[in-house]
Design a protein around this nucleic acid. Structure first.
Length: 591
RNA sequence: GGACCGGUAGCUCAGCUGGAUAGAGCAGCUGCCUUCUAAGCAGCAGGUCAUUGGUUCGAAUCCAAUCCGGUUCACCA
């Protein structure tokens, strides 16, 4: 149990003892004490003043006295300023904590809780390569999965590949028209980029044809609808649905090229999945649920035969769930897939990592599932994240302003190499070790950059100024880890201690911060927010660096101090490692 | 038009279940490498927390209105 939790309980108990008022520990507000005041944690008293009919000062004095006399082992001092009760936690508490955790490689993790959670992320289209937006999605998905694991959940990572539809037909048509039998191998192009190039070619040709038609006097809208290449694409989609052999063959071939490319990227960035769904397999799911919905009168049919749900009572709109021609729409597939997942894995919670442009969609999805009474319904959670924008605004593939994922990763790794060479600290590394280090640092910088901000918020990426390696960054934290490891390598093994104290201010600050780590991991899971961990780890590294500059660890004043500082260092390294690990970021032993 | 999200330092972001004088990083300016890795540390400077009103002991945080930006409301996926 964290100290903060203890303080809440102790405070509630003290209030009960003194005033016979029942109070939930959760109602007690505890903050870190501001540096300008004496103490470690502060109980804010205003909330109780009215109910207990005491002046803030009197209440503080009585509470402080009571808390300290009932828990002399935990608190050594208190003071009251205005309505704030500042408590000083005994050094013995911190020392005991460090001593108990310093060799715990699982520091921060909780025991398995037997609950299963699904995380669906990445979910690409197969007509073009991954870009910066996908990276945010992949890093978030991977990270939230790791955070949930660290909190004792069993996690199933899934991906739904959007492998069918008009978009992939566009690439296919363009390849038929302009490909001349080229393949990724014959052109030495990564498969997903290869197919993406034909998607671009499609759009170029389409635009050209539209202009041509307009020049012949057709109206804009008509030209856009009747361009031959578009008609051919629509026909191809029909052929695909009819299972026409040569179309299926081409479709399989081009998708296989894309998958080869995706696999390489996924491997590079560390994305993996326990189960991959393909839309070509799942797009017919959910049809039977339409019948169920009609029978339950959750859905209704219009005269033309189309099926709808009326969500206006919930502040939303009417939503189509089956077309008049009997085919299902996107949301119906999603309902079906939610059911499929439920049957297959029976998870308590199902998290969808999907951009915030689909907020409405997921609100509707959950609501429909609930109205249908599906067992999967309440577990649906949309982990919505904001778009990654450029200083000039949104990325647009048609305007060529998309930041390609592979390119960006390469660039980051190159910068890592360049900076590492400039500093010249690892000249004895083998080529293999160097390559690994560059990957670790480059990807670390990139992942940290994308994970350090609240997922909900959109963020800006400026390609002109490369991602930093100083300050609030991945490399800064990795560097701190490497520094600690350097000391630990040289020092004798870290051992248990019998200490005592007193702790110096920076030793104590570091201890307090370390003690928060498990709570931070829990919060991150609860809020579905990896940025909480990123911010925490950064602050931890910062405190350590101040401590490191101020105090000698290997040549501490006394053997006892040295033992304490070595423990602190080792535990800091472990917290950094475990924290970065749930962000999908490795930390080097040297850099 | 309805719904939802956002507006905090020059830039990128924390802080938002109301709590003490609003914090980081970058950029700018000062210092610090014969002692454990300077990808570091210490310091300076930088703010009408979009605006206005309200709620109260107390508001960046809650409520209302307004302004600005974004997303969404397809028989598209």
């Amino acid at each position: 149990m964290s100290v903060v939790t203890k303080i809440k309980e102790v405070t509630a108990a003290a209030i009960h003892q003194l005033y016979q008022v029942e109070l939930a520990a959760g109602d007690v507000l505890v903050n870190a004490t501001k540096p300008e005041f004496e103490g470690d944690y502060t109980v804010v008293l205003f909330a109780f003043v009215k109910q207990l009919k005491k002046s803030p000062d009197a209440l503080g004095q009585e509470l402080g006295q009571q808390i300290i006399s009932t828990h002399p082992d935990l608190f050594t001092a208190y003071n009251v300023i205005k309505g704030f009760l500042n408590l000083t936690v005994a050094d013995a508490y911190w020392l005991q904590f460090i001593n108990g955790q310093y060799s715990n490689t699982e520091f921060g993790h909780t025991k398995p809780n037997g609950e299963k959670v699904m995380v669906e992320y990445s979910s690409p289209n197969t007509n073009k390569p991954l870009h910066l937006g996908h990276l945010r999605n992949n890093f978030l998905g991977r990270s939230i999965a790791e955070i949930l694991k660290a909190n004792g959940n069993e996690v199933v990572k899934t991906c739904i590949v959007n492998d069918r539809g008009i978009h992939i037909c566009k690439s296919m048509i363009a390849w038929q028209l302009f490909g001349n039998g080229a393949t990724p191998a014959s052109t030495h192009t990564k498969g997903d980029h290869f197919v993406g190039d034909y998607y671009v070619k499609f759009n170029d040709e389409y635009k050209r044809q539209v202009e041509e038609l307009k020049a012949k006097g057709k109206l804009d809208e008509e030209a856009e609808k009747t361009a031959p290449i578009l008609l051919a694409t629509q026909q191809m989609l029909l052929d695909w649905e009819a299972g026409k052999p040569e179309v299926m063959e081409l479709w399989r071939t081009m998708n296989s090229w894309v998958y080869e490319g995706f696999d390489a990227t996924y491997q590079r960035i560390g994305s993996d999945f326990d189960k991959t769904y393909y839309e070509s397999d799942t797009y017919l799911l959910g049809k039977d649920l339409v019948e169920t919905g009609l029978a339950k009168k959750v859905f209704y049919q219009k005269p033309d035969g189309s099926v709808w749900i009326d969500l206006t009572a919930d502040g939303l709109d009417e939503k189509l769930v089956r077309r008049k021609d009997g085919t299902s729409v996107y949301i119906t597939q999603d309902i079906g897939l939610a059911e499929q997942k439920q049957k297959e894995f029976n998870a308590k919670q199902s998290i969808y990592v999907v951009g915030d442009e689909q907020n409405y969609h997921f609100k509707v999805l959950k609501l429909i599932c609930q109205k249908l009474g599906l067992p999967s319904a309440d577990g649906i959670y949309h982990l919505s994240y904001g778009m990654v924008e450029l200083p000039t605004g949104k990325m647009k593939s048609r305007e060529g302003t998309v930041v390609d994922a592979d390119d960006l990763v390469e660039e980051m790794v190159n910068i890592a190499r360049q900076k590492t060479e400039e500093l010249g600290k690892v000249k004895d590394f083998t080529e293999e070790e160097l390559q690994e280090l560059y990957d670790t640092i480059g990807l670390g910088a990139l992942k940290f950059f994308l994970l350090r901000v609240d997922p909900k918020k959109k963020m800006v990426f400026n390609p002109e100024e490369s991602i930093d390696f100083h300050g609030f960054t991945g490399p800064f934290i990795q560097y701190t880890h490497a520094r600690i490891k350097s000391i630990l390598r040289k020092a004798e093994p870290v051992t248990g201690i019998q200490e005592q104290g007193p702790l110096l201010p920076l030793e104590k600050e570091l201890s307090i911060h370390l003690e928060m780590f498990p709570t931070v991991l829990q919060d991150a899971a609860q809020e579905h927010d990896p940025s909480k961990v990123a911010i925490y780890v950064f602050n931890l590294a910062k405190i350590f660096n101040s401590f490191y500059t101020e105090h000698s660890i290997a040549n501490a004043e006394t053997p006892e101090k040295k033992a304490v500082r070595l423990q602190l260092s080792q535990l800091t390294a472990q917290a950094i490692k475990n924290g970065m690990s749930v962000l999908g970021i490795r930390v080097p032993e040297r850099m």
